[in-house]
Design a binder for these strands. Structure first.
Lengths: 90, 90
DNA sequence: CCGGCCGATACCGAATGGGTATTGGTCGGG
DNA sequence: CCCGACCAATACCCATTCGGTATCGGCCGG
């Protein structure tokens, strides 16, 4: 599992389609589809239901989404905290 | 910033040397050194003090370490929660 | 002053990741 | 009834990243 996969998953969950998320992430659709599948494979459970209209979160996906968001905000906090700390020294 | 870099940073912080962390991570020392440097570059601040005996955490590194551990545990929790959820359905 | 650790660098081959082109499936309108 | 639009999935290729081996430079202890 990579950090990019987590960001990609959140984008797909929020946009509702792989196409929309790809546009938002400035990458193209096929690699995004692959990352979502790789994430599901690694977790051992599907996170989305594929419909002809897009991707709908499954219960397992909702659960993962909450954790995923916490991971991303924790990383932002970490970067901000480090910069604040090193700035306060200099 | 990647998830691997965060794991690598924690290992170096805990082992106190790049060599020791490399052994624990089952990779060799040079790529580990590079990842630590890349992480510091991205954060814009050094995290370790290089000594002839190894790597000592700087204050900024201590701050980052706490957040880094939270990231890793959150990811473990996420994976466990997803597997629990999808198991409870089936 | 030399031997042993340490991290840093140079270089190379393998693996990962993203891009384009295309396919297959499903729905809505003429 | 079928054609066009929109979706995700796949095939294939190329650029980038990542890890490994070999080596260097610095520092301390015997």
């Amino acid at each position: 599992m990579s950090l990019a996969q987590i960001e990609y998953f959140v984008a797909v969950a929020e946009e509702g389609t792989v196409h929309g998320a790809a546009r938002r992430l400035h990458i193209s659709q096929p690699p995004l589809t692959r990352h979502v599948r790789a994430l599901e494979d690694e977790l051992g459970a599907p996170l989305f239901e594929r419909t002809p209209r897009g991707m709908r979160l499954l219960p397992a996906g909702e659960v993962f989404l909450a954790h995923a968001r916490r991971v991303l905000t924790t990383i932002d906090d970490a970067a901000a905290a480090v910069r604040r700390q090193s700035a306060s020294v200099s």
